[in-house]
């Protein structure tokens, strides 16, 4: 990244936890995917999760909005614990925004309709107000002029920025990103990362699964390494990159930074 901003220059995280994972375990059948995961994310904090493929990163962040269900331990989001109670799950999903690797925009709706769908049907905002809100966020991701187009008419980078705007329209307390740039052509990665850096600078609470180490260095408060369903190491970016403690972290960094 060209900007000189670093974590140190950003506002210090407030103390209230937005996401709390306490002793979380999950199994896919007999396969133990998440093993005793503990993680607290405070308001305004930005966490980057990295790690080898199959390490359970996606599974972990998908548990936070209950797209995947955990079997043991506690997940508390914005003070609401995820249990089998559907009301609570709905409540949590309203407060958590998610951006996927494959964008997952709704191809039959225009960009604007993609953004207003949840505000209208979940938040019950009047249409005009929802559209105003959507335009505000589309401006923030720098594509207000594409509002009337369909997702299929946009480039990958533009689609991912729409996906970010769509999630932001719900005013989430925390944004989850699952490898938001891995499906993009190299020349589009920057525009998406820049948008995410701007969000970070605005104090958005973010949990980002990513292998963009430049991004992690620039905006993360903490970098977390996950492997075999466990948190292997978590530390501030300078420490994490310059003085990795765990063998697996060293191995991972040597592979990814080459």
């Amino acid at each position: 990244m060209s900007e000189k901003t670093t974590a140190a220059a950003m506002p210090p995280p407030a103390d209230k936890p937005v996401v709390e994972l306490i002793g979380v375990h999950k199994w896919f059948g007999a396969f133990h995917v998440l093993r005793d995961v503990n993680l607290t994310v405070r308001r305004g904090e930005r966490i980057v999760i990295a790690g080898p493929s199959g390490g359970g990163k996606s599974t972990l962040i998908r548990c936070i909005n209950a797209i995947e269900r955990h079997q043991q331990g506690r997940i508390v989001v914005n003070g609401v614990e995820l249990t089998s109670d559907l009301k609570r799950i709905d409540e949590v999903r309203r407060e958590v925004g998610m951006v996927f690797q494959q964008f997952n925009l709704f191809p039959h709706l225009t960009v604007l309709e993609n953004c207003t769908l949840a505000p209208i049907w979940v938040r019950k905002l009047p249409k005009a107000q929802a559209e105003e809100l959507a335009m505000q966020y589309l401006k923030r991701v720098h594509i207000p002029e594409q509002a009337k187009k369909y997702p299929g008419q946009l480039s990958g980078g533009q689609q991912q920025r729409v996906a970010i705007a769509r999630a932001l329209c719900m005013n989430p307390k925390v944004m989850l990103f699952d490898e938001p740039t891995s499906a993009l052509d190299p020349e589009m990665v920057k525009e998406v990362l820049d948008t995410m850096v701007e969000l970070a600078l605005d104090g958005t609470t973010m949990i980002v699964v990513s292998h963009e180490m430049g991004f992690a260095r620039q905006v993360a408060n903490r970098v977390v390494l996950m492997d075999e369903g466990q948190i292997v190491e978590a530390n501030a970016p300078e420490e994490f990159f310059n003085h990795p403690q765990h063998e697996r972290t060293k191995l991972f960094l040597s592979q990814i930074l080459r």
């Binding site: 797209i67 309203r94 998610m98 996927f100 709704f106 049907w121 979940v122 999630a167 719900m170």
Partner: peptide, 26 residues
């Protein structure tokens, strides 16, 4: 694709609006 269900779920759409607004039209 499953991503459509997941995106709709992540936005907080419940079963019927999810089906009626996202899945069935497609």
């Amino acid at each position: 694709p499953r991503g459509q269900y997941e995106a709709a779920t992540a936005l907080g759409l419940k079963f019927w609006p999810q089906m009626g607004l996202v899945i069935l039209p497609q």
